[in-house]
């Protein structure tokens, strides 16, 4: 009986994920309405529940893909994986206004460059404080602080140790997760309520998953504007990390 049920689940992974996510969202919206009077957005609660489930999945299976490493929930990884995530992000552009994107275009590009350099410098500073002094490790950790893809790409290009690369990925993950959870709570303090600020936000934070999740829980209207800049960030980071940023770090720290 239980075996049959488990077979049905593992045979239809994506369908299971629709049911599970739907149920989790329903519970989240009920919590949002009843206990916070709508002050904490249902999606924000759902994302936090998602992250807690991911942690649970990670510690029980020792895998890297959160809850989706648990075999009956494998579909969560498919539904929340890169392919469908990017497809849905592109789809949000259906509701976006090109005029708004154009108006904030220059500022979005500026925020991309500032965002990459800022996160990088912060990462390098923290790595220094933790006792790293060589340019390769500093650059890799700084790059990982930009996003968890820029870190390993940069580290591999300049020959960092696997230990340092692991730290850089973890730093990027922390950034993504904190952006997902924190965005709705800081939104009103940083004026994140219009397309222009959303584009700057995407450029500064850069983590596509973080921005995508954070803005969804803040105001879904803002998602396309934040996503349109954020999706350029990782590419820019991978471009600047092993080149300009590495050379600058090397010049300063030898």
């Amino acid at each position: 009986m239980l075996e049959t049920l488990s077979k049905v689940f593992t045979d239809n992974p994506l369908i299971v994920s629709f049911a599970v996510v739907g149920a989790a969202m329903y519970i989240s919206y009920v919590i949002s309405d009843r206990f916070t009077k709508g002050r904490i957005h249902g999606s924000a609660i759902a994302i936090i529940i998602g992250l807690m489930l991911a942690y649970f999945g990670g510690i029980t299976t020792g895998g890297e893909k959160g809850l989706s490493d648990v075999s009956i929930f494998a579909g969560i990884g498919l539904m929340g994986g890169g392919m469908l995530r990017d497809f849905a992000i592109v789809a949000t552009a259906f509701g976006a206004s090109f005029d708004e994107i154009k108006k904030a275009g220059v500022r979005g590009v500026v925020s991309l460059f500032i965002g990459v350099v800022l996160s990088f410098v912060v990462g390098v500073g923290i790595a220094l404080a933790f006792g790293y002094t060589d340019a390769v490790s500093l650059t890799t950790i700084g790059a990982g602080t930009a996003t968890y893809i820029v870190g390993p790409v940069t580290g591999a290009a300049i020959g960092a140790t696997s230990e340092v690369i692991t730290i850089s990925i973890a730093a990027g993950l922390v950034k993504a997760i904190l952006t997902m959870v924190g965005t709705p709570f800081v939104a009103k303090y940083i004026g994140l309520n219009n397309p222009r600020t959303a584009m700057v936000y995407g450029g500064l934070m850069g983590t596509t998953s973080g921005v995508a999740g954070g803005l969804a829980a803040t105001d879904p209207k803002l998602v396309p504007y934040g996503a349109v800049t954020a999706t350029f960030y990782t590419g820019l980071g991978c471009l600047m990390g092993p080149s300009v940023l590495f050379l600058m770090t090397k010049a300063v720290f030898g």
Binding site: V21, A54, G58, A88, A170, A216
Partner: peptide, 19 residues
Amino acid sequence: SAMYIPIVIAMSASQNVAG
């Protein structure tokens, strides 16, 4: 476009939080 939020929630559940 409307499936975006559920997909993001599935994404959050497949993050490497433990890592």
